[in-house]
Design a protein around this nucleic acid. Structure first.
Lengths: 219, 219
DNA sequence: TAGATTGTTAATCGATTAACAATC
DNA sequence: TAGATTGTTAATCGATTAACAATC
C-alpha cells in the first residue's frame, strides 16, 4: 500500500504531541484533540495511522502510552541509532549539544573533519571525539554508525556522502545546500538557506496581496 | 492565481542553480538543464515560472543573468533584510557565522538572550551584539529588523514569537520544535528533530520492503 | 525554413477531506 | 441503548506532468 510522502513527518509530529500529552498527565487522546494541537484535520490523522494498523478504540480514542510505542515502532526509534557528524563546525557542535536527540534514540558518537587542528580534539558538552576524515570508513564500521550527518561545505558534500554510503551508512541527514543524488541510502535535507528564501518569498507575496486589496478599496 | 505551496522552495532552488551555472561561465540555460541538475521535470520548472511571468525565449531558453534577477525579485532578495536571532546558543552562533546568508541579502545584526552572562557580549566571527530580551521590542524597531529567528527552547518559543510580531517583524524562522499558530506573520519551520525521525522512518520502511522481497525470492 | 524550447492547456496523478458504517 | 469516536470508502481538492501550439 502506497503511503503518501508527507506522512513520515506527520508521524513524527504525532509522536511529539503524544509525548507532551503524556507529560501533562493525560492517558487517552482523540484524533480531534491531536488535530487541534497540530492544526490538522482529525480525518487526516486517522487516515495517516490507518496505513499502518488500528491503534485506537472506537468510541474511546487512542491510549497514549500505547500510541506512543506504536509511533516509536513506525519511526524506528525503538532502538538506538549511532550517528556521526562529518564537519566539526558550528552546526555540528550545535547538534552535538542538543540533548533532546539523545533522549530520542540518536547517539552522536563521532565527528570527522579534515582540519588537523580539530582532529583528536573533543567537541561539545558530551566530549565527542573528532577523527580524521581519512579514518571515516574504518570508524563508521567499527563504531556501528548507521546515520551520517553532512555538515561540510557543499563542495565536499557529494564526496562525503559517497564515503558514508560506501562504509554502510543507511541514512544521511544533509545540511549542505546541494541536492545529493545517491543510491542505496535514505537522504533527508535540512536546507536553511532555502528556508530563508521561502520565508522572504512568502512575505513578498503577502505584501503584494495587501497592496492590491488597498487599491481595491480605493476604487 | 493560486500558486502551489511547494513552489516557494523550488524557486529558491532554481535561484541557487542559476547562480552556480553563472559561476561556471554559462550564459543561457533551459528547463531541461535545470531539471537535470535538480532532479525535476522540465515541465514543472516551466510551469512554476509561468505563475509569475515569461522569463525565457522560445527556441533559446533562459538568459541566466536575467533569470537570476527575476528570481531574486520573486524571492524578495533584491533588498537587504535585517535579521535578529533570539537565543544566543549553538544554533544561533552557527547561523551568525554562516557567511552565505550575508551574501544573499540577509544581515544578522542582533542577538537577544535571557542569560545575563551573555548579554553585552559579541558573538561569532562578525561580532554581533547580544542584547537583553527585555530590549527586544525597542531594538527591533530601532534597528529596522524585519525577520526574527527563534532559537530558544520550545517552552519559550511562543512568547518570543509574540514579542517579535508585536515589534513588527514580518517573518519568523523557527528552529524550536513547536507549531506556532500566530497571525500577521509568515512562519517557516526548520525542525531538525522531525527530520531525524522522518529519516529513520524511511530507513525502517525500506528495510521492511527489502525483507519482503527476500521472502518472495524464497517462494 | 528547420530545429529548439518556451508558455499553456488538459490529463493524470497523488493527497486530503467528508461522510458514514462499524463498534466500543 | 445512546453517545462517541474510530477505521475506511468515496469524493474532492491540489499538484504534477504530458502534450502541443506558439515562436524564437
Amino acid at each position: 500500500m502506497k503511503v503518501p510522502n508527507p506522512v513520515s513527518k506527520r508521524l513524527a509530529l504525532y509522536h511529539r504531541c503524544v509525548v507532551s500529552l503524556l507529560s501533562e498527565g493525560k492517558e487517552v487522546t482523540s484524533s480531534q484533540e491531536l488535530g487541534e494541537r497540530l492544526a490538522l484535520k482529525p480525518s487526516q490523522i486517522r487516515k495517516d495511522l490507518s496505513y499502518f494498523g488500528e491503534f485506537g478504540k472506537r468510541g474511546t480514542g487512542y491510549e497514549l502510552k500505547e500510541l506512543k510505542l506504536s509511533l516509536e515502532n513506525l519511526l524506528s526509534i525503538n532502538k538506538t541509532w549511532n550517528v556521526c557528524i562529518v564537519g566539526a563546525g558550528n552546526i555540528g557542535t550545535a547538534l552535538a549539544n542538543h540533548t533532546e536527540f539523545f533522549k530520542e534514540g540518536y547517539r552522536i558518537i563521532a565527528f570527522f573533519d579534515r582540519n588537523p587542528s580539530k582532529i583528536g580534539k573533543k567537541i561539545g558538552t558530551r566530549s565527542i571525539s573528532v577523527y580524521s576524515i581519512e579514518e571515516l570508513k574504518e570508524k563508521v564500521r567499527d563504531l556501528n554508525i548507521e546515520i551520517g550527518v553532512i555538515a561540510v561545505p557543499s563542495s565536499e558534500a557529494r564526496n562525503v556522502a559517497e564515503m558514508l554510503v560506501e562504509s554502510g551508512v543507511k541514512g544521511i541527514l544533509n545540511f549542505a545546500p546541494v541536492k545529493l543524488k545517491i543510491e542505496n541510502v535514505e537522504i533527508e535535507d535540512v536546507d536553511i538557506a532555502i528556508s530563508f528564501k521561502a520565508l522572504t518569498f512568502k512575505i513578498g507575496v503577502k505584501e503584494i496581496e495587501r497592496k492590491r486589496s488597498v487599491n481595491k478599496q480605493d476604487c
